[in-house]
Write a protein that binds this DNA or RNA. Structure first.
Lengths: 144, 144
DNA sequence: TTAATAAAAGATAAAAAGGTCTTAAATTAT
DNA sequence: ATAATTTAAGACCTTTTTATCTTTTATTAA
């Protein structure tokens, strides 16, 4: 469904949001250790998200990644679009470039309704929301 | 969502079903021309589906691919599982191997409901059904 | 039984995704 | 200022996916 880059990106964003509640910054090393993701690969993803203002970062000692208050309300949709683009939501289920409402492929309508509910869910869910159950220990981001 | 192989596979299966209504057999060349898919790549996919009995084939002059009557009731789910496996339906949305009902990731439940409706749709849809609107010209499988 | 036809299979290659390693740049504390 | 720390960036490597080309095998029709 999502690319590996996107999976790591979402997990990292949730972790950063949860871990940086009082303005602490998390190093890429700590983040990757906590979520079980490859360090350099995930660093590139976060650098990209940082350029796109979905997460903040600061270099140097006591630097790291963190979330500004507004950034805590970033939705999964914004993260997915930033990393994987929007082909999952706009592309045809059978890969036909010319497929559209007016010129549909055989599964267009059935597919559309599922895609739309996926999109709706991603738009309604913020990283902040996803930290709630994490803190309650009801939910996890890594092996253990 | 689906791999290219899966997209070609589904398109080919729908086309074969539609085109072989009176027992004619379709050559891989005709199929690929009709659905706009790469010939040798699609041939391999159909060979695989043929070994798995989702489609039938016969070598030699006047040979080709065709559907037995029972095969017309094959569902999209069977095709997707044969080509892409079932990780789309059983795997975690965030790529966590240990994610489960009892030990869920932060998006487990939201994701599950979408995945389940996708699975339901794929299980309810047969290739035969998808040929109906094709024949009525309401729907297409290729550029034109 | 031979020639033509069409799928099957294998070898190879190109492109994309996933991942690692090294160096550079910025920031901080001493 | 300098050394230490941490992100940023670039080069590079591996694996998987997508795609092509060639050879083999089966079948049919003449």
């Amino acid at each position: 469904m999502f690319s590996k880059a996107c999976e790591y990106g979402i997990r990292a964003m949730i972790y950063i949001t949860a871990a940086s509640k009082e303005g602490e910054k998390m190093s890429i090393k700590d983040i990757c250790h906590a979520i079980g993701a490859p360090e350099h690969f995930t660093a590139k993803i976060l650098q990209d998200l940082s350029r796109k203002k979905l997460v903040s970062s600061l270099k140097g000692p006591s630097g790291g990644f963190f979330m500004e208050d507004e950034q805590r309300n970033i939705t999964l949709m914004e993260i997915v679009e930033a990393i994987d683009g929007n082909s999952l939501f706009t592309g045809c289920g059978l890969g036909l470039k010319q497929c559209s409402e007016l010129h549909p492929c055989p599964i267009h309508n059935k597919f559309k309704s599922i895609r739309d509910s996926l999109q709706k869910m991603l738009m309604e869910t913020t990283v902040l929301q996803l930290t709630q159950n994490l803190e309650k220990g009801l939910v996890f981001l890594k092996k253990n």
